[in-house]
Design a binder for these strands. Structure first.
Lengths: 258, 258
DNA sequence: CAGTGGTCTAGACCACCAC
DNA sequence: TGGTGGTCTAGACCACTGC
């Protein structure tokens, strides 16, 4: 019934139309979309065409599908992750991630999924200089309002874990893991983060409730001691549509002050 | 002919299979995939199913389609963009982006698309504190081996542009735009970058040769003077699969040196 | 012209969910 | 049980490319 102009494919136009209706709150956040059958009938197209349009909206994170139930409009706002201040804030009792989430009036939750000896991924092993050596893995999944927001896998060389038994507990105590490392003379003072974007693996899709085409941030956070040794690599996997990453720095190299 | 097991959809399995063949160089970088018709016949599925599998590979950037020609395996490696060192390196004659690209033995090229008065996007206007004011826009598109790698839109408050006429030229001269700003007492000394991931707009899809479902980095780079005033916002839009972003910093807040 | 991918349809069967 | 989305098919028509 609606006029579908020529230059774009129908499914792209339908996706645009639905996006507009989300923006103008015809379909407000949290509300269900009409069923695909209904939309197909309304628009005079086949259901696969509507399905394809919705696939686009799922990729961008605008809607979320619940099996057997329907398609609902996404509601979470973007969370700002300020890399530097989050580690500065760690001296508070709670973790840095909790701070970011509560700032938005969301309810944070952390689930510990695994704490123990593990073989790190090749890229992590290479950063830590481990060869085929083992590492301590601390895997946790973070939530905001019961929606998963990230997977965080921290790897420590196993030799470090042996010196620092606190790391084997779920609760590492006041100041977090870096405070415990500092107590054994391995406090991190320098950090590097490498940021990639990629599609989620299947386990990540399940854990983070993501579509196959929904991109994730992958951050390799590396902590170095004053001696220049890497003591921790934390791999963060975060749905791209949920986060804004923030960094800031001063120019040390040269402009004269005014 | 191939056994397609139950737990996964066929198109996902086909995508995995093709990805494996890319990894083991059955389909080496730059080579064409078999046509969709051929794959469909080989695998005993319909062409739309193969097409859907290839859509996945396009989203992840593993392959690239050329209309009327065929589907080829992507060849560009990831480019590392080190935020801090790239601005430190600007004193060289060439721009920072050129350095990153030539490091990988790729051929850089910069196209200036627009230099002139423009109305900045709302987010940029807000950062610059412009209200409805105008800005100087310098838009360029960067290439590596003739493949587009990013769109970079620099915005300067129009009042700044009037003080600093060099910014209206394509070639801003030795040291780049920041050197020119320093000459008029507005040299940037502090920087912020906010990183988002999103799907590309249609013009971006065309300019960057991207699929609708291929995520891009969007970086809002802000340069501040010693007085704390923002003098430039540069919005970078970069295909996610092409880049690794790197940041590093020292902990100023506290751990005692060992 | 023949070959490629882009797109759409009509219909179908399935798994999942809430009632 | 009925509604939802997930997926697949067979066939079709189109636009674009290169010869």
């Amino acid at each position: 019934m609606t006029a579908l102009e020529t230059p774009k494919s129908q499914y792209a136009q339908i996706a645009d139309m639905i996006r507009d209706r989300i923006r103008d709150r015809t379909y407000p956040p949290g509300s269900p979309l009409p069923s695909e059958d209904r939309l197909a009938a309304e628009l005079g197209v086949s259901r696969p065409t509507v399905n394809r349009a919705i696939t686009l909206l799922r990729s961008s994170g605008d809607v979320k599908v619940r099996r057997g139930v329907g398609t609902v409009v996404r509601s979470l706002p973007r969370i700002v992750r300020d890399a530097q201040s989050r580690y500065a804030a760690r001296n508070q009792g709670t973790g840095a991630a909790e701070v970011e989430v509560t700032r938005l009036n969301l309810q944070p939750r952390t689930e510990y999924r695994e704490i123990g000896k593990a073989t790190p991924p090749a890229r992590v092993a290479q950063i830590l200089g481990l060869g085929r050596g083992k590492a301590l893995l601390r895997r946790r999944v973070l939530y905001a309002n019961d929606e998963p927001t990230q997977i965080a896998d921290s790897y420590y060389p196993w030799s470090v874990a042996e010196e620092c038994a606190a790391l084997l507990q779920a609760d590492v105590g006041q100041g977090g893991s870096y405070a415990r490392l500092a107590e054994v003379g391995r406090g991190p003072v320098r950090f590097t983060e490498d940021i990639d974007v990629r599609l989620p693996s299947e386990p990540e899709q399940k854990t983070l409730e993501l579509e196959p085409t929904q991109a994730v941030f992958e951050i390799h956070h590396v902590a170095y001691t004053a001696g220049g040794d890497p003591v921790e690599v934390c791999v963060h996997v975060m749905p791209g549509h949920l986060w804004t990453l923030r960094y800031h720095w001063d120019d040390v190299s040269g402009d004269q002050p005014e």
